[in-house]
Amino acid sequence: MIPNLDFIFSSLVVLFLALLGGSLRILREYERGVIFMLGRFWKVKGPGLIIVIPGIQQMVRVDLRVVTMDVPSQDVISRDNVSVKVNAVLYFRVINPERAIIQVENYFDATSQLAQTTLRAVLGKHELDEMLAEREKLNLDIQQILDAQTDAWGVKVTNVEIKHIDLNESMIRAIARQAEAERERRAKIIHAEGEKQAAETLLAAAEMLAKQPMAMQLRYLQTLTQIAGDRTSTVVFPVPVELMNLLGHKITQPESPESPARR
């Protein structure tokens, strides 16, 4: 009888140690365990050492770290009927392990599919120029929409970044021609603004000189001084316009008849 008791006691000890070893779980700092007791949700445990009763309790591990998800390239037709391929990267993490396991079958796949459809829907409402020039605004719009829809799953979308927008060759050439025309337009506007400012400055200077006739003479002398300082064989002598008008009037005036005394 004694050997049988020893065998039974040893078997019980081994069974107890096996059950104890099978019930111990170690969760890292970034992990949580969603515990179900007899199929019903009980509590969220972790991190550290936890005990799960075999056969009665089950545990599902949930990672709380930020997940980087590459959104596959999507065919998007913009509001101005331009077909492009757009890919993006999505950053999200689980903030509520209970809802992430209970409310959705696979939160990773669900978030991926939602990101793809949201990317097409949001970019399809904008023109091509807005996609290329306002990426930060589009990133924020997509992030807010995803965050609002994944909140029921216990998932927080922290950031969305549009990585690349692929265009066909014809559209690239059209954009290049548009950019060149835009630069030419700006150059013409700047040149016209310069001419306008120069004309306004000349008008102000002419009005100032007209108030003091002697100022014009001083300006003539200053111009002669500048010309004399340059080593050049060409000398320009400014002549007052009034003198030129007087000489022209004398030349074109017919000779008057001789006086009787000279006859």
Rank of each mutant, 00 (worst) to 15 (best):
F7A: 15
I8G: 07
S11C: 14
S11G: 15
S11H: 09
V14L: 14
F16A: 14
L17A: 14
L19T: 12
L20M: 12
G21S: 14
R25I: 06
G33W: 01
G39E: 05
F41A: 04
K43P: 08
K45T: 13
L49D: 05
L49S: 09
I50C: 09
I53Y: 00
R61E: 06
D63V: 08
M69V: 13
P72A: 07
V76L: 02
V76N: 02
I77W: 05
D80E: 02
D80W: 00
N81Y: 10
V82P: 00
V82M: 05
V89Q: 09
Y91E: 03
A100I: 01
Y107P: 06
D109L: 12
Q116P: 04
Q116D: 05
T117D: 10
T118A: 04
T118W: 00
E127D: 08
E127V: 10
L128F: 01
D129K: 07
M131K: 00
E136V: 09
Q143M: 10
Q149H: 06
Q149W: 02
D151M: 12
V155G: 03
T158I: 11
I162D: 00
H164R: 11
E180L: 06
A187R: 12
A187N: 09
I189A: 09
E195I: 13
E200A: 15
E200V: 12
A204I: 12
A205R: 11
E207I: 08
L209Q: 06
A210Q: 01
A210S: 11
Q212N: 15
P213M: 03
A215D: 04
Q217M: 11
A228W: 08
A228R: 15
G229V: 12
G229A: 15
P240F: 05
M244K: 10
M244P: 09
N245G: 08
G248W: 10
T252Y: 04
S256A: 10
E258C: 07
P260I: 08
R263F: 10
